[in-house]
Design a protein around this nucleic acid. Sequence first.
DNA 1: CAGAGTGCTGAGTCCGGGTT
DNA 2: AACCCGGACTCAGCACTCTG
Length: 315
Amino acid sequence: MTTIDHFNLRNFDLNLLIAFDAMMEELNVTRAAARLKIQQPAMSHSLKTLRMLFDDELFVRVGQTMKPTSRARSLASRVRAVLQKAEDALAFSEQFSPLTEQRTFRLGFSSELEVHLLPELMAHLRVVAPGVRLVARHAERQNLHALLNSGDIDLAIGCFGEQAQWQRSEILFEEQLACCFNPALMPFTSPIGQQDYLTQPHALMSFTGSLMGCVENAFNRAGASLNAVFSAPNFLALLSFAQHSPVLVTLPSRIARRYGKLFGLVLCPVPLQLEVFPNSIVWPVNADSDPALEWLREQIRDVNQRIEPADVVAH
DNA sequence: CAGAGTGCTGAGTCCGGGTT
DNA sequence: AACCCGGACTCAGCACTCTG
């Protein structure tokens, strides 16, 4: 491999080569300037510098055109080759090959997505990328930034609220709430009326230690308050509780639909106009250029779409 | 008269010296 | 070693002059 004299290159403005190439293309200072999106005097200044550096006129005015000198003509092909190589180098990006890649991804999931999305995602990855391994971590609003910041996870999926400036995110799906109850223990049938919904005892998911958890603001904005008697960070505990007690469980509609029946519960829409909860893929900005993570985000979108194409609970 | 070249200016960047 | 500051330098644009 040949060495590069960085000191000499440091003192040579490589933009001058671009100006030279544009002049060779246009043979006109004004048009060459327009090509580089600069004003004609700036191009003229560059030409003056090039003339000084190469100790040659390079282009001489003959009537209405600028004729290249023999020195300029001999430089032209070499300058073009340099610029072409630079362009190729900048356009190059590392390719990611799912079938041959050996890599461990570390993903953060909110608790419901751990069971709802992760198994299907892993099953899918085993087929399309057999060399890929996955380490799942539990991620919630409270620890998301720390996990991403420390590099403990490559990306996270869930309902996390506002992202930091050094993070990127894309909405994967918008979640609605639904409720479940054991019809044998409750004095009504599905669909439940608003009055019953607001007065009956409730169990909710919460990661904050409060009874209402992250849905509290949504209910406040809807002008409603629930009679919350139980909260847990795990939806299985809520469903199991509702199986044995006369209580309403309000939780993400995907979870309610998929697991409610397993606990002998009936599903019904929440009889309130509540906002939706955006669930996003979140990753650090510095992972933007990683083709493997870009590929993984695409797989997550695909798997999510396959699991639940239309995530709607009818009101 | 169209287009190239020049002088001047402002904005941005670099760099070296002083200070903490 | 890190930070700050002021002077020097670079670059591009404006206004104008020059030239073929």
